[in-house]
Every structure is written in structure tokens, then in C-alpha cells.
């Protein structure tokens, strides 16, 4: 090991954070850029399914709540893009990678959102799963990422709670509403579990990322946490658990559960989910259609600058 590597590993082992200007292995930088930008893209793409429901949310309060949530996701995207930029990649490179398909985003957003109950289930399960992952990432070794996670976790808790509350209203409502809630749970439960990624043994980036403390807990451990915490939540809703095999294991101190449909997982990751093409196309269209806004900002700023210069003269 070179002295730089030794110094880097010493910091990692001592739980010191790595900061942007510190020396770091090229692969550490690369893994971080991949993970943080993927995380940022997920926040941004995640606005699409929920944004679609703002006009259809069933009451003024629920519309206001949903607008706030979508606004938060945009903010989270910005925190994360900024954190990735400290590693030397530009915003346009990242967006280019998203639009070309080179960079991934959470595959959960490639599942269609069919009813209002799905929006509730997303807040509860999808944000819930994201929180389990993000709480763990608050202790990540890269300073800007860790600080972004701490801020995001503070805001995210409202997302999950409002989703559960909306789910509760449906589950305690009319038989039709309850059926809608059950249907949403049945469809979103499994993809939510897939959000934690492949089994540890199949995870290409996990080992090095654990060693460097980019990731603090393995995919399978985080998934187990989520499985465990969700059982009681489903019970309180009075809904049926989608996994027939769910069973408390006294010895492990955890719930045993069915394995996931990994063929589906890989197929969605590789671009063949219901909404992959639609999500990226929409991002490209929104970006292109927003061109005039960016032009207007630039024009306005140039005008303002000219005015200032005139005053100064």
C-alpha cells in the first residue's frame, strides 16, 4: 500500500469521514459516483408517478401533501447531485447517463401506478424501504453523502407516515376501498423488497463498498429489517400479508419469508419493466420542453448583468 492508501484506510477504519479534497482510490470515487448519482436519479424519476396523481388526489389536503412530497423529492435530488458533483462529475454528465440508460435508478419506479391506493402504498412501502436504506447510509464514509443522508432522513419520515395514514383510511373504509388497499399492497410489497438489491452473493459492488464503508449494512440485512418492521404495520391495517410464508423464527429473531422473483428483478433492472421506456422518455421530454425556461433565465441574467455594468460605469 502506498502512504496515501494507508492514510485513506486509516481514516476509514477510525470511522473518520472522507472529504472531497482528500486522496481516495479511483475505484472508491467511481463506486460513490455510481451509487450517489443512481440515488439522485431515483429521487428525480420518483417524482413522475406521484406528480401524475397531484390533480387526482382525493382532497385538497391530500393534493397539498402530495405537492410537498414531490417538492421534497426534487430537493433530495439536488442534495445528492451536489454531493456527487464534489467527486468531479458534472450535472450534465449525470443527466446524460440517466437519459442514455447508462446510469440506473431504483427499479421500483418502473412499476405502473394504477390507483390512488398505489400512491398510498408507495409512500408507506417505497419510502419506508428507502428510509431503512438511508438511515444506514447516514454512517457512510463519504462526508457530503453522509450529511445529505442525514438531512434527507429528517424529511423522509413524513413521506412514509402520510402514505401509511392514507392507506389506513382506505383499509378502514368501504369494502371497495379496502380491496383497493389490499390490491396495492399485493402489487407493491414485492417490488419494495427488491429495492434493496440482489442477494449479497450476487451483488457486484457490495464487497468493496462494504470494505470502504460506503455501504454499512448488506442488502440482505437491510431487506430483513424491512420485512420485520412491515409485518406489524400490515396487521394494524387489517390487511392480508402478501407473503403466505411469512413466519416468526424464534431462533433467528427475525421473520422467515419467501424468496423473491429474481427473474423479474433482473428483467426490470435491464430495462424491461412496464414503465422503463416511459420514465426515461418523459424525463427527456420534460428536459427538452424546459429549454425555453433555461434560456429565459440565462437571458434575464445577462440583462441584469448588463444593467449592473451600466450602473457601475
Amino acid at each position: 500500500m502506498t502512504p496515501e492508501e494507508q492514510n485513506f484506510m486509516r481514516k476509514i477504519e477510525a470511522e473518520e469521514k472522507i472529504e472531497p479534497k482528500d486522496w481516495m482510490p479511483a475505484q472508491y470515487r467511481k463506486n460513490l459516483i455510481r451509487q450517489i448519482s443512481q440515488h439522485a436519479h431515483s429521487e428525480v424519476i420518483g417524482m413522475q408517478p406521484e406528480g401524475n396523481y397531484i390533480t387526482r388526489a382525493p382532497s385538497l389536503r391530500r393534493k397539498a401533501v402530495l405537492i410537498s412530497k414531490v417538492q421534497d423529492e426534487a430537493g433530495h435530488g439536488l442534495y445528492l447531485y451536489s454531493a456527487a458533483e464534489t467527486l468531479g462529475i458534472s450535472r450534465s454528465e449525470m443527466i446524460e447517463q440517466l437519459q442514455s440508460g447508462k446510469a440506473k435508478y431504483s427499479s421500483i419506479f418502473n412499476y405502473p401506478v394504477l390507483t390512488w391506493a398505489d400512491v398510498a402504498a408507495i409512500g408507506w412501502l417505497v419510502d419506508g424501504a428507502a428510509i431503512v436504506n438511508q438511515v444506514s447510509l447516514q454512517r457512510t464514509s463519504y462526508g457530503p453523502y453522509s450529511r445529505g443522508m442525514i438531512r434527507i432522513c429528517k424529511e423522509e419520515s413524513f413521506h412514509q407516515r402520510q402514505g401509511y395514514k392514507a392507506m389506513l383510511s382506505l383499509a378502514k373504509g368501504s369494502p371497495e376501498q379496502k380491496a383497493m388497499a389490499q390490491d396495492a399492497l399485493n402489487r407493491f410489497y414485492w417490488p419494495a423488497l427488491m429495492m434493496f438489491g440482489p442477494h449479497d452473493s450476487d451483488s457486484a459492488h457490495s464487497q468493496k463498498s462494504m470494505e470502504w464503508k460506503i455501504k454499512r449494512e448488506t442488502n440482505d440485512d437491510l431487506r430483513q429489517k424491512f420485512v420485520d418492521q412491515t409485518v406489524k404495520q400490515i396487521e394494524v391495517l387489517g390487511l392480508e400479508h402478501p407473503d403466505q410464508a411469512i413466519k416468526w423464527n424464534e431462533e433467528r429473531g427475525h421473520y422467515d419469508s419467501s424468496d423473491l422473483n429474481w427473474d423479474e428483478f433482473w428483467s426490470v433492472i435491464n430495462g424491461n419493466g412496464h414503465c422503463n421506456r416511459q420514465r426515461v422518455e418523459h424525463h427527456i421530454a420534460a428536459h427538452d420542453e424546459g429549454e425555453w425556461v433555461r434560456d429565459a433565465i440565462t437571458a434575464y441574467n445577462e440583462k441584469k448583468r448588463a444593467k449592473k455594468a451600466q450602473h457601475a460605469a
Binding site: 433555461r294 433565465i297 440565462t298
Partner: peptide
């Protein structure tokens, strides 16, 4: 690609 952050 035009991304405004580059100009700011």
C-alpha cells in the same frame, strides 16, 4: 446537452 448549472 444544455444544462443550466454549467452557466451558473
Amino acid at each position: 446537452m444544455s444544462v443550466i448549472t454549467e452557466k451558473l
